[in-house]
Design a binder for these strands. Structure first.
Lengths: 233, 233
DNA sequence: TAATAAAAAACGAACGCTCGCTCTTTTTTA
DNA sequence: TAAAAAAGAGCGAGCGTTCGTTTTTTATTA
């Protein structure tokens, strides 16, 4: 596993990005080794090259027409690969969705792990929120896909996907509860956690609204955090 | 057009529901008359009966598997109708999605109209937020469908759907701007508007998280409004 | 280092099947 | 009894997938 990357404080998006360990090639290499059972190609070099083509094409087509409506022939003409090449790589269509879920899981787990290493709950909260916000922006197509195409997954994986979101919410909720001085006078912790989470999702679910003063995401993160601390009274 | 229904203040969900004019049958009758061009049946009585079956079935199947994956044969066995009956009613599959968009548009326009009739911006904001929150809960399957299946619509209708959301955001933003006393010291109005909107959507997009202390939606609404007023300093 | 053998990857036509939809016939309605 | 609605078998297109073959890459040998 890769060393943590969000332990700084007052983190900006630019800094985060600089230390973000999941560059495209690294990510595909990780996905290749984590999903041997779903991938037909045995040599990493070829697997990475094909996976890159397949996922780039998927992320171009799916936001326009949806995963179910994307045919493998659409995928062929977008990737330039042949039917055989695609099937050797992913073995069947739904594995595309399963691998996306695995990627998002991988990154989310990493963020939670980083946040847990912060002793101060205020720092931990910042780490968690910025980590999730920035990572989901750097890997926007992945997070977007998983949100909108969870229904295209087989049932077990649908549950995984739902639990992934639940875990993030719980993690936030616990930190917020710790930070509220007089719990009786404040908002319910789960309400604030929900607010934080849905503000993060807002960014990656509606990319057309945020193209892209780039720096604006730092303001966005600050506003979110300020609003949360504001809510503590 | 039906008279407005959200002019009260301190509105609870229960009260709202009592005066909500879009009961199932009324809604289908309205949709029938608004979408003559998409509907083959000429007698309202039969149209309403079939539309009800078709949309109920759609809303049962789609959250599990998605609209593209729902076949007409799935729809037949869920509705008990025949192929002829279904096609006489909706003429083609994508009209299901188009009619959902029309329904949501109809209701949203009504909410905005009601809010605009409030002279006081504070009241107007409450009217808008509660109107949208409560209506989208009463018609949860419709709002949910439109959000997740916008990509299944033909392009023109996709744009309509996007503009519908934009219009809600703009409406909120203007009211919030009015209410901020010292704009320079507060959060950007579009940030708070975005927050409000995504909190409302949270409720109808993740129904599994909110099944259903029913009354809890009043608390939810109050918390949202409180948080917003809180943000004004 | 060049020649060769073995393994892996890529190709793409063809398959069985399911899709959305049509259309003739039958039933129901007013 | 004329018009409207419902039925459901059937159609062609296009789907995901398979598989026999070819091409490329890697490993071995001389």
């Amino acid at each position: 596993m890769i060393k943590e990357f969000t332990s700084n404080k007052g983190l900006t998006f630019a800094e985060f990005k600089k230390h973000f360990p999941y560059s495209e090639d690294v990510l595909y290499a990780l996905l290749f080794s984590r999903n041997q059972a779903l991938i037909g190609i045995r040599r990493e070099k070829f697997a990475v090259r094909n996976l890159k083509k397949i996922f780039r094409a998927t992320f171009k087509l799916v936001p326009k027409i949806g995963f179910q409506a994307m045919s493998l022939r659409d995928l062929l003409s977008e990737t330039g690969l042949s039917m055989g090449g695609v099937y050797l790589t992913i073995t069947n269509k739904e594995n595309i969705a399963i691998i996306v879920k695995d990627a998002v899981t991988l990154v989310c787990d990493d963020i939670v792990r980083s946040a847990r290493e912060e002793a101060d709950p205020g720092k931990a909260l910042e780490c968690l929120i910025k980590g999730y916000l920035y990572a989901s922006l750097l890997l926007q197509p992945w997070f977007y896909f998983l949100y909108f195409e969870t229904r295209s997954l087989p049932q077990t994986h649908q549950n995984d996907s739902k639990n992934l979101e639940r875990a993030q919410a719980t993690e936030l909720e616990q930190l917020i509860r710790e930070l509220q001085k007089q719990p009786n006078n404040s908002y319910p912790p789960e309400f604030i956690a929900t607010m934080a989470l849905s503000m993060i999702q807002e960014r990656y679910l509606k990319p057309w609204k945020y193209k892209q003063p780039a720096q604006s995401v730092d303001d966005y993160a600050d506003n979110c955090l300020q609003l949360i601390h504001h809510s503590f009274r």
